[in-house]
């Protein structure tokens, strides 16, 4: 059984269309979700969280359809998106105190561990944090309730190279504990270091959803890095 399954997802906007997006995620795998700005990554991710209503298609987590099991599924998944400012004038402590009550598997020890790792001061307010620290705070919320699936939209953007390296190490540790991670990013070098699989989306259509090694073999030319492959594919599509 796939941990996450997205089948024939369609969503039409006046200027953009998501066309029959299908892919699956396997337990304990890190999957990189790549594509240009506006290719459909965020729409797909938002659909997976029921933030955007797909016109058609199915999404299931742990074999359960999202629509009928929304709150039960959200107990078991974590989501983080860039540097969104949650409750900018409340302290991190206040936000955490409320948030932990929603999760039956909140892990206070993990929360403290990531607070230390990310050097977050719980007396600070989101409005006082730099963009990178906001990303870390969002990640802290996603990582502190023993999520089995993490959906991370641009989790490394805004982070300094050292923090990115720490975060990728966190991903690898979580993976070894069986956590499934889907993360979208423009920083393809991060994927080269930790992704098992790649989902490549262009103009609302999935062009590849396979193991990273297969992706490199099928789309890559001699000695090309993932970034070079991605850039060449995009250039070819534009030509």
């Amino acid at each position: 059984m796939h941990i996450v399954e997205v089948t024939d997802l369609c969503k039409a906007y006046p200027a953009f269309r998501l066309k029959d997006v299908s892919f699956s995620l396997e337990k304990g795998e890190i999957t990189g979700f790549i594509g240009r700005n506006g290719a459909g990554k965020s729409t797909t991710i938002k659909s997976m969280l029921n933030l955007v209503h797909a016109d058609s298609g199915n999404i299931s987590f742990f074999g359960l359809p999202l629509k009928e099991n929304e709150s039960a599924i959200k107990q078991r998944i974590g989501y983080s998106t860039g540097s969104v400012n949650w409750y900018p004038r409340k302290t991190i402590r206040e936000i955490l105190e409320v948030t932990r009550g929603f999760y039956s598997h909140w892990d206070e020890e993990a929360c403290q561990r990531y607070m230390d790792l990310f050097r977050l001061d719980e007396n600070k307010r989101p409005m006082e944090l730099s963009e990178g620290m906001k990303v870390k705070f969002n990640l802290l919320l996603a990582l502190s309730h023993r999520a089995e699936v993490l959906i991370l939209d641009e989790p490394t953007s805004g982070l300094d190279p050292f923090s990115r390296d720490e975060l990728l190490e966190v991903f690898r540790t979580l993976k070894s504990h069986g956590v499934t991670i889907l993360f979208s990013t423009h920083i393809t070098s991060d994927l080269e270091r930790c992704a098992d699989s790649i989902i490549y989306i262009r103009q609302g259509e999935i062009r590849a959803a396979c193991l990273k090694s297969e992706f490199m073999q099928s789309f890559g030319q001699a000695d090309e890095t993932l970034e070079e492959i991605f850039l060449r594919l995009e250039r070819e599509a534009r030509a």
Binding site: L49, L51, E70, S71, K74, V84, N85, R89, T99
Partner: peptide, 17 residues
């Protein structure tokens, strides 16, 4: 201004709740 609705929807609760 605090992105309260988005934050709430991401919590493990149904949207109608």
């Amino acid at each position: 201004e605090a992105n309260d609705v988005l934050y709430s929807v991401l919590l493990p609760v149904a949207k109608r709740d």
